[in-house]
Design a protein around this nucleic acid. Sequence first.
RNA 1: GGAGGGGUGCCCGAGUGGUUAAAGGGGACGGACUGUAAAUCCGUUGGCGACAGCCUACGUUGGUUCGAAUCCAACCCCCUCCA
Length: 417
Amino acid sequence: MSAPKSAFLAAMIDRGFMHQCTDLEGLDAAAMKGVVTGYIGFDCTAPSLHVGSLVQIMILRWMQQTGHRPIVLMGGGTTKVGDPSGKDESRRLLTDDDIAGNMAGIKQVFAKFLKFGNGPTDAVMVNNADWLDKLAYIPFLREVGRHFSINRMLSFDSVKLRLEREQPLTFLEFNYMILQAYDFVELARRQDCVLQMGGSDQWGNIVNGVELGRRIDDRALYGLTTPLITLASGAKMGKTAQGAVWLNADQCSPYDYWQFWRNTEDADVGRFLRLFTELPLDEIARLERLDGAGLNEAKKVLATEATALAHGRDAAMQAAETARVTFEQGGTASDLPSVSLPRAKLAEGVPAFELVVAAKLAASNGEARRLIRSGGIKVNDQAVGDETAKFGLEHLVVDDAIKVSAGRKRHTLVRAG
RNA sequence: GGAGGGGUGCCCGAGUGGUUAAAGGGGACGGACUGUAAAUCCGUUGGCGACAGCCUACGUUGGUUCGAAUCCAACCCCCUCCA
């Protein structure tokens, strides 16, 4: 089709969110005509979300920014069953309390990105347990099950690939796509929701929902998927040594979050600026034209803008300043991650390897010793050669803290407390 | 229910009686080079430690043996084929 007329789809396409759409022209027309309600489903298996979900969060935000109404669908019902796809480790069944707690945590994340309320374009959060829990098997089969042909279901990638690899596929998993399709129909009925979005791996499930809506309710529903975001170097995005990069401050401080984006690979900067910030496209075009070390400026902008979305502008500026002092001045910023040790303990003197463990820069004494031996540890910017060298109150040089560094990027302040 | 195959460190995977804390790869971390990038090269990668060693570890529990990830038995789990 020619360029979309609606601001929403224009943003989706121009910023790199669009992978596939069931009916681009139809959706564009709907978006031009009025407020479109669209949703994305999220698991509630954890009390927060990580950057792996950020693409989906951003498209909900763009919906709202361009005058539409986003719905966050929590998989309270499906989580109770346990999403069986993916890994084969047996999942612990979550209790209702766990799920409620996780939902509350996830809502905190969304509160940063979306405006919730009762207005026409205010976001709402709904839980599919509200309808899935109450489903009666036989009536459900008769209403919904009759519209699914096994022949067709077997042709979907999610199923087909499993069968081709001769991996087991349980009946439960097989039903998952039906439940997800039904969610869409239910949301269309309850919330007048006509659009489901998701990652490209959700395409089949989304299409099923679109078709089910047409067959049961004769409704025009739309589906849209985003591309799988990987790093230019091929790795999965959002994985670090510490695990996932979480979006809530408790599990990933704004400083660490800023650092995550600051360390983006050169080749990803432009793409990430488009996806994960709301800077104007011409500004992004300018930034990504910087080359060599100049790209570092673009990375700082990316870090600050992305952090501002997740943690607020103030926290982002603070993180940027902490990074500037630490990395560009080689100084010690008082806002670095910190731990405290009892003053009395420091008075006795703490061996270097213990100090490193206390600073959480190593998981065990052995690891700390190895780090020191390989020349990776600095205390107050001085290399430490002896793993048993003692550090104490006299080393509280800056801001009543000892600066302990592992490698060039990881710094912790050890305070007397 | 029957027959066969398999469960090894963060992951994959070699190892079928001793020199095995366990090859190799991946990942991760540290160093060099740089730009807090990528690529490349080097190193490290169970815990404790007075650095002499000690402890824990190859699905689980027992057994054989001077000695077991390796042999035996039972059990648990996974896969394939048959019913």
